[in-house]
C-alpha cells in the first residue's frame, strides 16, 4: 500500500490514540483501517475533520477509555464557519457544533485540566456565563486576560459534561473590546443566580475534621493525618454538601458553618450537644438533612458547571394566590 487516503486525518487519529497511551490505553490498528473508517464516514456525508473525532472516539471507547473526548484535541471542528455567523448570547447557547460570534468578559481563568489544554475559564455577558477552552497546538494564540471583554468571531460551540462551551481554535479571531465597547462586567463582583430544591446530601458533611493549616483546610478522614501536610491536629468544623436541582440541571453546593446555621438553625454548640446526646457524629448530618431536604432556595454566586460557588442565598417565599393565578392562566392558554 503506497498512498493512503486521508493521510493527514489518519495522523490526527494517531495523535489522539497516542495521547491515550499515557493512561495505559492502547489501540491496535493499521493506518489503512483508520483511513477506511474515515472514508466510510465521508461517504455518509461526514466531513473528514469530524470523522477524525468519531473514529478516534470509537477506537478509544473499544479500548476501554471512559472519557475518550479528553484525548481528542485538534482537528475536530464540527464544520467550517460559513461567512456570517449569528451573534449569540450566553443564554442562547444550546447546540453544539455551531459557528457563532460571541462577546463576553473573562470572569475567571483556571489552570488547564489536561496537559494538552492551553487555556480554560468562564466568559460572562449580560445573560449568563459559558466555559471556554483552547487546546495546545490548536492555533489559538491570544492570551485571554481576566476582566477584559473580547469579541470572538468565529467561534465554535462544543459540548462537555452536558454543558455547551466555546472552543477557541486557530480559526477564531479574538478582538479585545475597549471603552464603551467593553461589557462593564467586573469579575470581582460578578454573580449568577440559580433557584432550586435541595434534593440530596453527600458524604463528608455535618461535623467534619479539617486540616488546621490556613492554606490547606482539607477535610480529613483521619483527624491526625493530612494527606498534604502530614501529621496534624485537626479542627472540627460544620459544613453542608448538598445537591441543588431545578428540574433540568443540578449543582453541588457547599455551605460553611455560618451558612448552615442560618438555614438549618444549628450552631456549633447545638451540634456538639446533639453528638453528646446521641453519642454519634453522623447525627449532625441527619439533623441538617431533616431541616433542609426539600427547601426551595435561591443561590447567588459563581456557576462552575457541575458545582456552584455560593456567596449568598435566600429561602424562596411560598407562592401567593396571585403567583398561582399566573401559572393557572399560563396553563389555561395552552391549546
Amino acid at each position: 500500500m503506497t498512498d493512503i487516503k486521508h493521510q493527514d486525518h489518519v495522523d490526527e487519529v494517531r495523535e489522539a490514540l497516542e495521547s491515550a497511551e499515557k493512561d495505559g490505553i492502547s489501540v491496535e490498528t493499521t493506518d489503512e483501517a483508520i483511513s477506511n473508517a474515515i472514508e466510510d464516514h465521508r461517504q455518509k456525508r461526514v466531513d473528514p475533520e469530524d470523522a477524525v473525532r468519531y473514529v478516534s472516539r470509537s477506537l478509544l471507547r473499544e479500548a476501554g477509555a471512559d472519557n475518550p473526548r479528553q484525548y481528542i484535541s485538534g482537528g475536530s471542528n464540527p464544520s467550517p464557519p460559513s461567512g456570517v455567523n449569528p451573534q449569540l448570547t450566553a443564554s442562547q447557547l444550546e447546540e453544539e457544533g455551531e459557528w457563532i460570534e460571541f462577546i463576553g468578559t473573562v470572569i475567571e481563568a483556571y489552570d488547564p485540566s489536561y496537559s494538552e489544554m492551553d487555556q480554560q475559564g468562564r466568559l460572562a455577558d449580560e445573560t449568563g456565563t459559558v466555559r471556554f477552552v483552547s487546546w495546545q497546538n490548536s492555533g489559538f494564540e491570544t492570551e485571554l486576560v481576566t476582566g477584559e471583554t473580547y469579541r470572538f468571531d468565529p467561534v465554535v460551540t462544543t459540548e462537555f459534561d452536558g454543558n455547551v462551551e466555546l472552543k477557541l481554535t486557530g480559526t477564531t479571531q479574538a478582538e479585545r473590546l475597549e471603552g464603551d465597547d467593553a461589557l462593564g462586567i467586573d469579575p470581582d463582583t460578578y454573580t449568577e443566580t440559580i433557584e432550586g430544591v435541595l434534593v440530596d446530601f453527600q458524604d463528608q458533611m455535618g461535623l467534619i475534621e479539617r486540616c488546621p493549616n490556613e492554606t490547606c483546610r482539607r477535610v480529613l478522614q483521619d483527624p491526625t493525618v493530612c494527606p498534604d501536610c502530614g501529621e496534624v491536629e485537626s479542627e472540627t468544623d460544620i459544613r453542608t454538601k448538598a445537591v441543588v436541582d431545578d428540574g433540568e440541571d443540578s449543582w453541588t453546593v457547599f455551605l460553611n458553618a455560618e451558612q448552615t446555621d442560618s438555614l438549618a438553625q444549628l450552631t456549633f454548640e447545638q451540634a456538639e450537644q446533639l453528638v453528646e446526646k446521641y453519642d454519634y457524629t453522623g447525627v449532625v448530618k441527619e439533623y441538617i438533612v431533616s431541616q433542609l431536604h426539600g427547601e426551595y432556595i435561591r443561590f447567588h454566586g459563581r456557576d462552575r458547571g457541575r458545582s456552584f460557588n455560593v456567596s449568598d442565598f435566600e429561602l424562596l417565599n411560598p407562592p401567593s394566590v396571585t403567583d398561582l393565578e399566573n401559572v393557572k392562566q399560563e396553563l389555561e392558554q395552552l391549546p
Binding site: 430544591v197 434534593v199 440530596d200 446530601f201 428540574g247 438533612v289 431533616s290 431536604h293 426539600g294 427547601e295 426551595y296 424562596l316 411560598p318 407562592p319 403567583d323 398561582l324 401559572v327 393557572k328 399560563e330 396553563l331 395552552l334
Partner: peptide, 28 residues
Amino acid sequence: VESITDIPEALYDSWVKDTAEKTATRLT
C-alpha cells in the same frame, strides 16, 4: 425513595406551583 423528610406545609404550595410551571413547559 432516596430521601424522605417531613416538611413544613408551605413547601407543599411551592411544589405545586413549581410542578404546575414545569408541566406547562412540557405541554408547551
